[in-house]
Amino acid sequence: MILAGATALGGLCLSSQQVRAQQTATADALAIIVHRSNPVDELSSAQLKRIYMFDMQNWPHGRKITVMVREKGQPERTEAIRLICGIAEAEYERHVLLQTFRGSLGPGPRAIQSVSAMLRFVFNVPGAIGYIPVDQIDGSVKVLRIDGLLPTEPAYPLRRSQRVGRDD
């Protein structure tokens, strides 16, 4: 149950004050968000990559995963693809088109124009997964732990200042 003025973080409820304090310190983190009814609380970095590379297209409880990305030309899109998949945006687009061309998936990820649209989409679509800056989190969605860590924790892996190795 989510209380008024609180945010669901990895199944935990924090007060708005606590969230604000932690957001200040970790504003460059990218939060992975899903629908509040999604029973999944945590993903490993490898599982998250498999979802965004379309190697995994269903949640463990059987619901279809709807992958969301920001629209082309937005800096958050490039950063998120680099952090989650470890490849450049152009390579990701080539990979998605090849998977689509092979018939391994339908038209690919849904492109979303803004943070508010991303939150609204995840709020409405039980199978959706998306990402937003940690300071944009509200109580309408669930934030997943990645490798056991919340975006507010120092060792959280999805930080935009973080350098990740290329997948080659």
Partner: peptide, 13 residues
């Protein structure tokens, strides 16, 4: 995508 991102309807061609 731009104006009604709040549904999971079929995504066109």
């Amino acid at each position: 995508e731009q104006h009604d991102a709040a549904s999971d309807q079929p995504s066109g061609v």
